[in-house]
Nucleic acid binder design. Structure first.
Lengths: 121, 121
DNA sequence: CCGCATCCAGATTGATACTG
DNA sequence: CAGTATCAATCTGGATGCGG
């Protein structure tokens, strides 16, 4: 039986989940991990603009939430692979839609911004 | 014809859209506006925990992006209604899935966190 | 290769007070 | 009712250097 949660309530734990998703890097990371495991520096290279520190922090939070897994291979030097968990996989279905909505509707958003800014004298 | 955007690229404008969505209040506001227009103070009351200032700022950004509309009625005192635009409506279909994913999977996330924290001694 | 520790500047936010 | 203005406090992120 599932507890009743209400995102509109302050202190509702679902707010934590939204906070985690409410982070552009999380969305990009989850989207990037869709379909394949990726190593740390590969993620760093692929997701342009993320700093090492923030990437590391974000990965740790996602791991804590059970959305991604972290696997260490005892190679020299060490290899670390990040991958989606089953739970994370269910989330990326929503998340990737978001990322691709952004790509599809970008032109319209940019036009709206331009038009809005013009009304401000 | 649609330009080619790649969310993984730094400086890609789609990042702006993700940044906007990457805000817990935006998600909650868009979800709350689904199906009905809502007034400022009503939003403030419904979305528990948001400050007047941040709500105001967030609404302005969403309006600028063309996702919501702002309508002023010349009553005394004034009435201001916020509603989704057609563009915003297409987005809420993704967004509401996110909010409800959070509600559905909250238990599992909380369990994962608990388990993760225990491994840290 | 993968990350943590530190330092520091800049962005965000909350509280409070005030306007049309 | 629906905001804006201001200021202090906090949080965040980038840069750098080190360690397993």
């Amino acid at each position: 039986m599932q507890a009743e949660y209400d995102v509109y309530e302050d202190k509702c734990p679902t707010r934590m989940v939204l906070d985690r998703l409410a982070d552009k890097w999380s969305v990009l990371i989850l989207d990037r991990l869709d379909n394949e495991a990726v190593r740390f520096n590969q993620l760093r290279r692929d997701i342009k603009g993320v700093s090492q520190k923030v990437l590391s922090q974000t990965l740790k939070k996602l791991e804590r939430d059970g959305l991604i897994s972290r696997t260490v291979f005892a190679t020299v030097p060490v290899t670390v692979e990040y991958a989606l968990t089953p739970l994370g996989k269910t989330l990326t279905d929503c998340v990737s839609e978001l990322a691709h909505w952004a790509e599809r509707n970008m032109d319209e958003v940019l036009a709206a911004q331009k038009s809005y800014d013009k009304t401000l004298d």
